[in-house]
Write a protein that binds this DNA or RNA. Sequence first.
DNA 1: GGACCCATTGTTAACGTTCACAGTCTTCCC
DNA 2: GGGAAGACTGTGAACGTTAACAATGGGTCC
Lengths: 338, 338
Amino acid sequence: MGSSQTRRMPVMADVAREAGVSHQTVSRVLNEHPNVRSETRTRVLEAIDKLGYRRNLVARALVTKHSRTLGVVSFDTTLYGPASTVYGIEQAARAAGYFVSIVSLKSIDRDGVRDALDYLADQGVDGIVVVAPQRSAAQTLADLAPGVPTVAVEGGEAGDVSVVCVDQVEGGRLATEHLLSLGHETVWHVRGPSDWLEAEGRVAGWRAALAQAGLGAPEPLAGDWSPRSGYEAGRSLASMAGVSAVFVANDQMALGVLRAFSEQGVKVPDQVSVVGFDDIPESEFFSPPLTTIRQDFDAVGRNSIEVLLRQIEGEGSHACERLVVPPSFVARASTARV
Amino acid sequence: MGSSQTRRMPVMADVAREAGVSHQTVSRVLNEHPNVRSETRTRVLEAIDKLGYRRNLVARALVTKHSRTLGVVSFDTTLYGPASTVYGIEQAARAAGYFVSIVSLKSIDRDGVRDALDYLADQGVDGIVVVAPQRSAAQTLADLAPGVPTVAVEGGEAGDVSVVCVDQVEGGRLATEHLLSLGHETVWHVRGPSDWLEAEGRVAGWRAALAQAGLGAPEPLAGDWSPRSGYEAGRSLASMAGVSAVFVANDQMALGVLRAFSEQGVKVPDQVSVVGFDDIPESEFFSPPLTTIRQDFDAVGRNSIEVLLRQIEGEGSHACERLVVPPSFVARASTARV
DNA sequence: GGACCCATTGTTAACGTTCACAGTCTTCCC
DNA sequence: GGGAAGACTGTGAACGTTAACAATGGGTCC
């Protein structure tokens, strides 16, 4: 009894002995090979159960060269967008029988991405998803062209890697067109950091919608996604004349804008209409509830795993895919007819 | 040239041949064994560089029985708290040279936790961190007493596993004492789901502070952490007489409460003071900016890895640790003297 | 009834590392 | 100068699985 703690884990050979077969037959049962007599199978399964045997996946990986592990590289998983995407990825991967190994970067410089990729490659992952919304990360990825199948999420114009993303331009357009349709003369924009592809896309959509309405675009205000930067942009906007509609590039900054307006006595939506982007769970309860553009992060995560698995399992065909998920418009109380 | 793509990855034996030594010497160089002549070392390193050799960690793991991978089991990494904790864990683990394999559960039933643990054990992780704020998860963990070193984050009164957590009772006390010190007659509470240890702790702190002031506790309102549940609790509170101070168990619900009050024309903090919990990045920009209790999730993540590594590396001593991180009070504009 | 096919099982050899042990060659001390 | 200690290196055998091939036995088809 005292030594039962120390007794080593049973291996395939132990099961084989117990069941009176060869270890290879045990392997066949475990891998659901068709040609095993059902009586034999039963005997093996009983032995497995009796001994509490669990297959050693490391040994398996050594010989098959497949670890059934996927790597995820992401920037700051504290943010709602990346967190939700990674969550979707993890769910989909596990459903497909893959483990998920994650690397969160605090800054997205070229070396950081390269290191993360090397790190995961060392671990022997079968594929990698890079949640890389910055231009620099996408660029690095294209340059690296790693030996492992890779998918970029929000990865810009694909060089040699597959991409899954939300149609940011369309999102920017939806937001802007909504505001214009309410009769606003023009739409101001609080944008995200210039290195971010998502920020660029939303700016482009906003510009396009204005152009289509025959309007020029005012100078966008720069933010960094944080509520604070939105707050500062909001103070600027509050002090300007003729601002009646603002499209803010994410909900967190929109919160800051709303706060600044509230402090300055600017009524939303009576005096100014505001549209955000992302539809974070909080948006519905802002004051006022925020009209916004919803991104289906879950779908993005799921799709990226689908694309990646296609790439892993159908080795030959490098049909570098590009999958675009449409955004949707969510009407709430922060916008009103002029 | 055509076959250079197909050329297999070099292995230790290739490096050995190139450098004119045995594979074991290569291994020694890689593992920084002291007894290698520096000239030999140089020769080996050059060979490694020339061939672009990378050590196969799977083979290494097979023989050493250590994968240098840590498993993380977490509930809904979309929430700010778990996401931040996992982020801290990942950073600390990587700094210590460990990979992180993650499993996000959508529900925390007994089977879910057990499956996740089994799943990670199969993968051969060296240790596991369970971010398990629910009583049921903590209980399961204690029962399972797995073969792998394990740390529970927010895991309640430790049975047989180490625990790292924030002092929730102290947090609840801080919030309540602050409100009482402003002269409020009593403090109402919107609590979290009853299965959550964090919710229980905050309730306990609130009760304790009221008791210390010689006050009985009114019936707490039940929420589920979501802004919507806070909103509903807020509507109830707004319709009640004599409510002048509310301690809400997290910031998201506090947002809902603020929204409900605003709709009902209840002024915060003039008529009612509100305190939240967590200090999410948005809180500072609520209307009004939210007074709250800050949890240092980053420290929790770092500490849990420290405890886990101590447990992994110092095999023998099962000194089941319990590490408590203090919360801190953050004063903003949602509370005022009565 | 002989050739052949297929289902079922076993045997042996990888996979790429580290561990245990056995050398060989210095060096140093009495 | 003999011996021991230590530095350095090599040899063979694990680790636990799957892959490749061989072997057995029963059935089918002409």
